[in-house]
């Protein structure tokens, strides 16, 4: 038995010496997670990315692969985030006519809304005694993941904690926009879409496209602008706070 275990461990070590196994596990979990997500009827409370991540965790535990070994190989996938972030310039360009038409309300509301989204999180976490590393992980919680990862790296936060925070924030933003929108009797799809994109990044934007194409377009716009604006102002806040 211990012989078998030893040769099995050697085999796993051999297979994880290159990034191929980690990439295959990631792709497999992504497609499986997506299929399960569709079967469940695309629930907003459980994003497909969470299901896929849980499948990776399950595979790692079952095959006794060390998380650090997996992460080493998965770096090759994460490396593509750089060009993918640049690619976000394409939808930003395509929506520029919305920005031109509504530049005044956007200029007056979006920067303030994006600042408050970050400040509420920083302040509440700070009051509850969170260390600077945690504040840096929660600050970009409303920003779309590829940009948020860059911000958290700059601020010295933990990427895994940021990713967890992003998931919870996306789900909560969808829930709150739904409840508060009804309570405040807001029926303008542009406002609901904007609120979903600014606060709930990609998860909120997916929900906005379910409301209407107009809500979806404004959510993508809100998400993109929040990401850009937060990436510019948060590092300055950190310098000013001397962290």
């Amino acid at each position: 038995m211990s012989d078998f275990l030893a040769s099995y461990t050697a085999l796993i070590d051999h297979l994880t010496a290159t990034p191929i196994a980690a990439i295959a596990i990631t792709l497999l979990a992504f497609f499986l997670g997506n299929a399960i997500f569709q079967k469940m009827g695309r629930p907003t409370w459980c994003p497909g990315i969470l299901i896929a991540a849980l499948i990776v965790v399950l595979i790692l535990i079952l095959l006794r692969i060390d998380y650090v070994q997996y992460q080493e190989g998965a770096r090759w996938i994460i490396l593509l985030l750089g060009p993918a972030t640049v690619a976000l310039g394409v939808p930003l360009f395509q929506q520029i006519h919305h920005i031109r038409a509504l530049w005044k309300p956007i200029l007056f509301t979006l920067p303030l809304a994006a600042i408050m989204a970050a400040l509420y999180a920083i302040l509440l976490a700070w009051l509850a005694g969170a260390p600077p590393e945690l504040l840096a992980s929660f600050a970009p919680k409303s920003v779309t993941a590829p940009i948020a990862i860059g911000i958290t790296e700059q601020l010295g936060g933990s990427i895994p904690i940021l990713m967890g925070g992003l998931l919870v924030t996306g789900v909560m933003a969808t829930l709150w926009v739904n409840l508060l929108g009804r309570w405040l009797k807001i029926e303008d799809h542009r406002i609901l879409g904007f609120a979903l994109g600014i606060n709930g990044h990609a998860i909120g934007t997916v929900r906005a496209f379910e409301i209407s194409p107009t809500a979806g377009a404004f959510a993508s716009l809100g998400m993109g602008l929040t990401g850009v604006f937060t990436a510019l102002f948060l590092p300055l806040v950190w310098i000013l706070m001397g962290m």
């Binding site: 303030l112 809304a113 999180a121 409303s142 919870v168 924030t169 926009v177 606060n199």
Partner: peptide, 23 residues
Amino acid sequence: LAALLALVLGTLLSVLTTLWLMS
């Protein structure tokens, strides 16, 4: 507790702020 406050209450407040400003 810090995570709960920042993510749940913080998102509630920021959604409320956005909806109010936008409307």
